[in-house]
Amino acid sequence: MYAFTQHRPATVRQAASLLAKQEEAKLLAGGHTLIPTMKLRLAGPKHLVDLSKVEGLSGIEMKGRSLTIGAMTTHVEVQTSPVVRENIPALAELAGKIGDPAVRHRGTIGGSLANNDPNADYPAAALGLGATIITNKRRIPADEFFKGLFETALEPDEIVTKVQFPKVNKAAYVKFPNPASRYALVGVFVSKRSSEIRVVVTGAGANGVFRVTAFEEALKKRFGAKSLEGLTVPADGMASDIHGSAEYRAHLIGVLARRAVAAAG
């Protein structure tokens, strides 16, 4: 691992100023992607700005029809939160399927979204529920947040502080996990909020998380697994690696989407 200097700011403002001031600075949340990446020398930040001492970045709150989760809230906190379980149970279930218990004790929602790993689970929930990512500067709709592999709309000194999820009528997430890492080989998140239907895929796209508009259109006529029968996603644009070919991933999208719609009820 390359040498670095650690910083432990107490406020978002201090953290943002460190990010802006220091060359090659990176934020450290739960560290469960960044630390392994640094060990492999795939990342070599000169400065690590740790967010664990920053006040007000954790917590879960339901206000009206909107669920707000602080960026430093851990996966296990989302998984076990009675508020999340009552209002958006699919989100609690998704959080409980990330990695393993030790990973869920450290990993955070803000870290996962800002990293935008193409096989991560949270990007599917954020896009699949039409969430809003709140930063120290602005509010970014999930539709404009994810920009490709490990790329987001975040500016260099921008910090995710909260994520806001609207309550939906129906939602479910089904994933085919890599048996070792538990990352999604393919994961499909579906949701229905009045007339808005979203079908979102993680793990499969060569360019990260994406919506399947053809499936969404079919579900608008009738929200049921039958509406998706015979519909497929072309293998073009799918990721292909030792874990699964593009064709296999495309096939899984159809299977998992039907299961997710059935699970959402």
Binding site: Q6, R8, L28, G31, H32, I35, P36, D50, S52, V76, P101, A102, V103, H105, R106
Partner: peptide, 18 residues
Amino acid sequence: VVHVDGKAVKACTVFVWQ
């Protein structure tokens, strides 16, 4: 895996100062 404040954590993925 060790327990940090009572929770299982992978000790290879935490800087001690954190």
